[in-house]
């Protein structure tokens, strides 16, 4: 027994094993509480699809050596701006979603490039700097959302007519365009979103196996090694940061189409943390990450959140304990990962 435990921990790491056990316990309680397990699993799948691309955005940044992208909110903001632009232009449906993705890319590239200049000057402290950079940009954009010259009455405040609302509904725009892209009879699952996520994963997987991707991996794995192998470390860190921001922008659009709303202002503030927790639970570290970490992580983390909410609320109806559990788990796993940044030497 002890042997098996040790083997599991060695192979999958503490976070993955613990979260899986917690998940199983929650599911058993859910069954005892006579909750609809089918409903819980379905909700989990929706949330998994919703968050998947945001979690994938962590991969390029970890692989290129800039660590977990705590400033992913910058990419998220780029995606939100692009989304608002398409609404302003009144492009709806799948076309609207894809237009938003296309518009977000140049914005994210620009933001990622500027941010990487900063990152290349603070080597070793990327994650601390990134956290505050993310916070600052979110705060700055709180002013931005008020000042940007959007006119569409569906987006701006009803009274006064200036400044974007905190929540913009996507009903009649591109609400669930990916989720419902492919529908099977009697099955209501976000198949389209999963497909989109799979395509993104495939491209990242391909990229990591290209000459550029491998150079980026070397730059992240051991910068001095990379330099001695003729690799321009700063260049590949820049590429990794840009890629992460682009995926962040696309990720929020995927998130929003499934969720049905854009959340502006402080909405993006804590979003990077959820993505970070997910990839860490999936077995990534601040130095090493793979597509399989993303998939495992987003499944475990999002099902945990989705299932714990009704189960714990039934157990203790007073207060919102499930929210507390979410915060403990997501911050706990980040803390755990950060203590292990130095590796196991």
């Amino acid at each position: 027994m002890k042997n098996l435990w040790q083997k599991l921990v060695d192979k999958y790491g503490y976070p993955k094993v613990f979260i899986t056990i917690l998940l199983i316990i929650l599911l058993i309680i859910a069954i005892i509480q006579k909750q609809s397990v089918y409903g819980l699993l379905k909700d989990s799948l929706v949330r998994i699809g919703m968050n998947s691309v945001l979690v994938l955005a962590m991969v390029p940044s970890i692989v290129s050596g800039t660590g977990l992208n705590f400033a992913l909110s910058i990419g998220i903001i780029c995606g939100l701006i692009a989304g608002c632009i398409t609404i302003e232009m009144n492009i709806v449906g799948l076309k609207g979603f894809l237009t938003a993705v296309l518009i977000s890319i140049p914005l994210s590239v620009m933001a990622g490039y500027l941010y990487s200049i900063l990152l290349n000057k603070v080597k070793g402290d990327e994650m601390t700097v990134g956290t505050y950079m993310g916070f600052s940009v979110v705060s700055l954009m709180c002013i931005g959302w008020l000042l940007l010259p959007f006119r569409n009455p569906e987006m701006v405040w009803a009274i006064g007519g200036r400044g974007l609302r905190t929540t913009i509904t996507l009903a009649n725009k591109y609400d669930k365009v990916l989720d419902r892209l492919i529908t099977l009879p009697n099955v209501d699952l976000p198949i389209g979103t999963f497909l989109f996520f799979a395509v993104c994963c495939f491209f990242i997987w391909l990229f990591l196996r290209s000459k550029t991707g491998i150079a980026m991996m070397a730059a992240g794995s051991n910068p001095r090694f990379a330099q001695a192998s003729g690799i321009n470390v700063d260049k590949y860190r820049t590429i990794g940061t840009i890629l992460s921001m682009v995926l962040g922008g696309i990720g929020i659009l995927v998130y929003a189409q499934s969720y049905g709303f854009f959340q502006l202002y402080t909405g993006p503030l804590m979003m990077p943390f959820a993505a970070i927790s997910a990839i860490l639970i999936g077995g990534a570290t601040a130095r090493k990450a793979s597509i399989s970490n993303v998939i495992a992580g987003v499944i475990l983390f999002q099902s945990l959140l989705t299932i714990s909410l009704p189960v714990i609320n039934r157990m203790m109806p007073e207060g919102n304990l499930s929210e507390v559990v979410r915060i403990i788990v997501s911050n706990g796993v980040i803390l755990y990962a950060l203590t292990r940044v130095g590796g196991n030497e």
Binding site: R224, S229, G230
Partner: peptide, 24 residues
């Protein structure tokens, strides 16, 4: 500096051997 400069300690032998020639 064998461990600091010459090797990526967390990567495979084959990749360590190939990477310089691949990039250059």
């Amino acid at each position: 500096d064998r461990r600091g400069v010459n090797l990526m300690l967390d990567e495979s032998i084959e990749l360590n051997i190939a990477i310089g020639a691949m990039q250059v």
